Amino acid sequence: MSVISEENVRGGSSVFKDISADDENLQPTEIESLCMNCFQNGTTRLLLTRIPFFKEVILSSFSCAACGWANTEIQSAGQIQEQGVCYTLRVRTKQDLNREVVKADSATTRIPELDFEIPPFTQKGSLSTVEGLLDRAVSGLEQEQPVRRVCTMMLLL
């Protein structure tokens, strides 16, 4: 994996810009790319940005007009720091599930009240909501369940 750093950019100017709702010049780059669902051409949008108090990231979003499949990812573009940061969010209302979350692929997500944990490197990095994080974990747990049930039944026989 290559890391894009300011030193590697010709001219010394940074390719990473701070996220700002007021910056109209901060536009994603669009490229045509292959849809892995239907194998037609879709559109990938890439944005190199710096999230304040976090780090440099590459935000990518893919959408296919042919089949409607979409995917979003966030990838680290900086060095992994030696020490992590712990953020705690108490979900008290339904609105709290709509809070936006930046989750690195190396992050651990815990819900102690449910004895539930999403270990590091089991999900790709994402820019999502709390509810979206949980939905992704549930989808991962449901994946291949019919096959697992058949295998379990065969072992019991």
Results as ranks from 00 to 15, higher is better:
4 I>A: 12
4 I>M: 12
4 I>H: 08
4 I>G: 03
4 I>S: 10
5 S>W: 02
6 E>F: 00
6 E>R: 14
7 E>G: 10
8 N>R: 15
8 N>S: 15
9 V>T: 13
9 V>W: 06
11 G>E: 08
11 G>L: 09
11 G>K: 10
13 S>T: 11
14 S>T: 15
15 V>C: 04
18 D>W: 02
18 D>E: 10
18 D>R: 11
19 I>L: 14
20 S>F: 05
28 P>F: 04
29 T>P: 01
31 I>G: 03
32 E>I: 11
33 S>T: 11
33 S>V: 03
35 C>K: 09
35 C>M: 09
37 N>H: 12
37 N>R: 10
38 C>I: 12
39 F>I: 02
39 F>R: 06
42 G>T: 14
42 G>Y: 13
44 T>H: 01
44 T>A: 05
44 T>F: 01
48 L>G: 03
49 T>A: 14
50 R>S: 10
50 R>D: 06
51 I>Y: 03
52 P>D: 11
53 F>Y: 11
56 E>F: 00
56 E>Q: 03
58 I>N: 04
60 S>L: 03
60 S>T: 10
61 S>N: 07
63 S>N: 08
64 C>D: 12
65 A>Y: 08
66 A>N: 15
67 C>A: 08
67 C>E: 09
67 C>N: 08
68 G>D: 15
72 T>W: 00
73 E>Q: 08
78 G>Q: 05
80 I>D: 06
82 E>G: 15
82 E>P: 08
82 E>K: 14
85 V>C: 07
86 C>H: 05
88 T>A: 11
89 L>D: 00
89 L>H: 09
89 L>W: 03
90 R>G: 01
90 R>Q: 08
91 V>F: 09
92 R>E: 13
94 K>A: 14
95 Q>C: 08
95 Q>F: 06
96 D>C: 12
99 R>P: 01
104 A>R: 02
105 D>T: 00
106 S>D: 07
106 S>E: 05
108 T>M: 14
109 T>K: 05
109 T>C: 12
111 I>P: 07
111 I>Y: 09
114 L>R: 06
114 L>P: 06
114 L>W: 11
117 E>V: 13
117 E>D: 03
123 Q>C: 05
123 Q>A: 04
129 T>C: 05
130 V>T: 01
133 L>E: 06
133 L>A: 00
133 L>Q: 03
135 D>K: 10
136 R>Y: 01
140 G>M: 07
140 G>Q: 09
141 L>C: 07
143 Q>N: 14
145 Q>N: 05
146 P>L: 04
148 R>A: 12
150 V>M: 13
150 V>C: 06
152 T>D: 04
152 T>Y: 06
153 M>S: 15
153 M>R: 15
154 M>Y: 07
154 M>R: 13
155 L>S: 01
